[in-house]
Design a protein around this nucleic acid. Structure first.
Lengths: 137, 137
DNA sequence: TCTTCATTGCTATAAACAATAGCGTTTGAT
DNA sequence: ATCAAACGCTATTGTTTATAGCAATGAAGA
């Protein structure tokens, strides 16, 4: 059985991404969140007070889809919205959000370490540059 | 604005994958198919007569989800099912399926070339090995 | 100042995809 | 002959993403 797709970077990218994502979500499920929640928490943790659509722009999530995302993390008590001016609002982590973020970082670090470990050592320095290159926007 | 995600291989993988996929689907839309259809056509073209669940196993698609996939490509006249024994069926490309596959290959080649072009030349030999490594199953 | 245009957050909806459970039939091994 | 596994399928659900439109606000130019 010959798999002609196994030598296509685009296809490998997709399969690798979906496998890695599934694995990460299994780990994050232990604290009741998914990878999108995690990315929002990390971004907010690094940039307290950024506004909602900025966050969406950076994360590649549309305004409309940011609403339920922020809402559910606010409802969980992890995130706080604060009116910035009449139309925009800033995002902050709550204190439990800060705590959860520590756990998220632990999980993410473990995940990333597991990922990178699958790459032959001499190629590891190229992983990030290559993925950044492939990520066109 | 600091993006703490930009140095995480797992995150880069996801963003790169989704960007590349969106781009590929834009190109494939011109011939009325998507990337999943394309992968099935390529696989069938390379392995005429493989059966439906084998195909699903290789492509990472579950039996239940193979049904509408094969059905719609059969309805388009690209694919043919042939009873193999009482329970399984073999997949073949029709002659128009073969024709379409040529176009698919052209599009895919163009796409892959565009992808690889974004990687610094000296790193290109590592792209496939790295992605294969990252793709754990 | 007044007017115009872009931005923000939101609702509602649709479309696409993947995952689960279960069914009838068939095959193959014991 | 029996029984477990495999196949294709249906039906359903959940998840995610995309699209369109809206009211309110802010910013910039005439």
């Amino acid at each position: 059985m010959f798999d002609p797709l196994a030598s296509l970077p685009g296809y490998l990218l997709r399969r690798a991404s979906s496998a890695s994502l599934a694995e990460l979500n299994r780990k994050l499920a232990e604290i009741g969140i998914n990878h999108v929640d995690a990315s929002l928490l990390m971004l907010t943790g690094a940039n307290p007070g950024l506004n909602q659509s900025e966050a969406g722009r950076i994360l590649g999530i549309q305004r409309a889809n940011m609403v339920p995302l922020v809402s559910r993390n606010e409802a969980r008590g992890l995130l706080r919205r604060q009116k910035l001016d009449g139309r925009s609002q800033a995002l902050f982590l709550s204190s439990t959000g800060e705590d959860i973020l520590q756990t998220v970082h632990k999980i993410a670090d473990r995940h990333e370490a597991m990922l990178i470990a699958r790459v032959p050592e001499e190629m590891r320095p190229y992983v990030i540059p290559i993925l950044r290159g492939l990520w066109m926007e």
